[in-house]
Design a protein around this nucleic acid. Structure first.
Lengths: 326, 326
DNA sequence: CGCGAAAGGCGAAACGTTTCGCATTTTGAC
DNA sequence: GTCAAAATGCGAAACGTTTCGCCTTTCGCG
């Protein structure tokens, strides 16, 4: 493997000049020519390890998240990855399987791997734990989709409460009064916010909240499926159900249709995250769309700015969700 | 940040001894004690850049794949990541969005990032292109799920033909004679193999292949949805449809049910990849399950063995899919 | 043509490890 | 107690960059 030294020799300049050329400094055209040619000829590539040792930066960004196999996260991360790559960074992904111990362990691992920055979708970690783990290193961090209470950083969220408020309000306008919701775990930031939106909409329209119409569980197919069954088994059935996640929506559909219920005639459904599924149905079902791409892009933007020296206030972006309904 | 030099000084031994201790060499217990204490006290961590420069290894494995937001890939990669991490490696994921130019570009990027190994789910790249891009570097590579004709490496595949053969045969045993299939793109290795399994099953049971019952498209919801509609619009409708991918299956369901067809009574469906969806229905639908976890684990195993010096023949594993049906 | 400023080039040090070859200590058998 | 072998420790070099401070060349202007 050719080194910068070989290039310098071949081009007849000093090693420092080659380095300057590579890193975009001023070099006389004549020399630039020679260096270019030498690089070409020797098929020289910068050795990333040596560079990192010297600069103490790796140009890699850690992404710590619960689970990459969920479509929502997958799409966010894809956008993130693309943005970072366009700016010369690469993405080091780490999934902690919604598991507290792994969340802690993987965070430690990412840091010891020498990441320049961290983009983080937290779940269980407390502020104390976070600060303890990251005490020594000092990499910038961007929180995404969720937030640890007491941890200050740039943050990109969606307006969960608003989105679910709107969804609920739509159903109410359509005449529904018995509206159920199937939601994620109580300890998940975004799930909590969605719950708030639901409650507020009911209250604003003077509709009593019924405990039995509110179901909590993991963000899984099973939660949607069994949750829907539970609801349909009630003597006092809801006439509409709001879902809060892709898997829950699919589970919910499945259960409802298995019972031979026509959607939306027999039971109305408000989907979440699965725009393609909902819009292709006849009639199209209303659905909450989260701006996944934009979320990834914004987080990437914040991170890149920090890495390029921005040192101002922490920024909090609330992206609006789009409620897709006629 | 403390360096190994500080540790050596604090422990009263030489720098080389500390290094030996860290890397598991023989050190007198007395010294080990002192070093341990010094490390603790100074909160010393090995600097990964310096280590990499010296060893020319990064302990990171590149994973190049079409799209992380597909549940199948997501699950495979999650397993992969976990295995590699347990062995002290980390995963550098790169999605090329099923795009030829990006596939090339991202491969180049991964290599220039100094990965120790590559785990690769290819799509468009030819053997020539692959060899050209990887000519200079010499990292081990494991192909997963698919294979480039003419590129020799450890490879982990599933037995696609077998799986679809069995699925088709089941439907035939159930009495179906008009069996349609909705499949992925013709240039995707696994899609082609699935097609082969379908054709062979038909032929083995003396059933004519009908061109109009075979539909090709991207691995997307839309393909399943519109494909199903096309099939149902035929004067000569199939009585069963085989899907070959998660998104296609969901699309197919949606279209069939929108028409008010009962599954499996009015039209039988064989699902793919979405075991939870299919098994929770009543009655449960048959479905092809790909051993995603095992696939990731096997690929990780092969990679780790190569990195630890194994230098034997290339290995080809064909994992069996499980056909889940009563 | 001459001058000062700006641009460009250079050598050397530094980043924090691992590892080589050799020197020293320890060990165990006699 | 002695000796050889085994175990352990050490100093120094090396990995391939970037960057600092200083020196030389070039350029533009009067």
């Amino acid at each position: 493997m050719a080194t910068i030294k070989d290039v310098a020799r071949a081009a007849g300049v000093s090693l420092a000049t080659v380095s300057k050329y590579i890193n975009g400094g001023n070099v006389r055209e004549e020399n630039a020519q020679a260096i270019r040619q030498a690089i070409q000829q020797l098929d020289y590539r910068v050795n990333p390890f040596a560079r990192s040792l010297k600069t103490q930066r790796s140009r890699s960004i850690g992404v710590l998240l619960p689970d990459i196999s969920a479509p929502f996260f997958g799409t966010v991360v894809t956008a993130l990855d693309r943005c970072l790559r366009e700016n010369g960074y690469h993405t080091l992904i780490s999934c902690y399987s919604s598991n507290h111990a792994m969340e802690r362990e993987n965070l430690r691992f990412l840091i010891s791997a020498g990441i320049d920055g961290l983009i983080y979708i937290p779940e269980y970690l407390s502020a104390e734990e976070y600060y303890e783990l990251t005490a020594t290193c000092n990499v910038p961090m961007v929180q995404m989709d969720r937030m640890i209470q007491g941890v200050d950083s740039d943050t990109v969220l969606v307006d969960n409460a608003d989105a679910v408020y709107n969804a609920t309000a739509r159903l109410i306008e359509k005449g529904h009064r018995k509206i159920a919701m199937i939601s994620g775990p109580k300890y998940v930031f975004s799930a909590l916010e969605r719950q708030v939106g639901y409650l507020r909409a009911l209250s604003d329209h003077a509709i009593m909240f019924e405990d039995r119409w509110f179901i909590n569980g993991e963000h899984s197919f099973a939660t949607g499926y069994t949750g829907c069954q539970e609801l349909l088994d009630l003597a006092d059935r809801p006439t509409a159900i709001i879902s809060t996640n892709y898997d829950i929506t699919i589970g919910l559909f499945t259960a409802a249709r298995e019972r031979g219920l026509r959607i939306p005639d027999d039971i109305d459904v408000f989907g979440f995250d699965c725009v393609d599924v909902c819009t292709m149905m006849k009639p199209p079902l209303p659905v909450v769309y989260q701006p996944e791409q934009l979320m990834g892009q914004t987080a990437a933007k914040y991170m890149i700015q920090r890495l390029e020296g921005y040192d101002g206030e922490n920024r909090l972006t609330r992206l609006k969700c789009r409620v897709i309904a006629d």
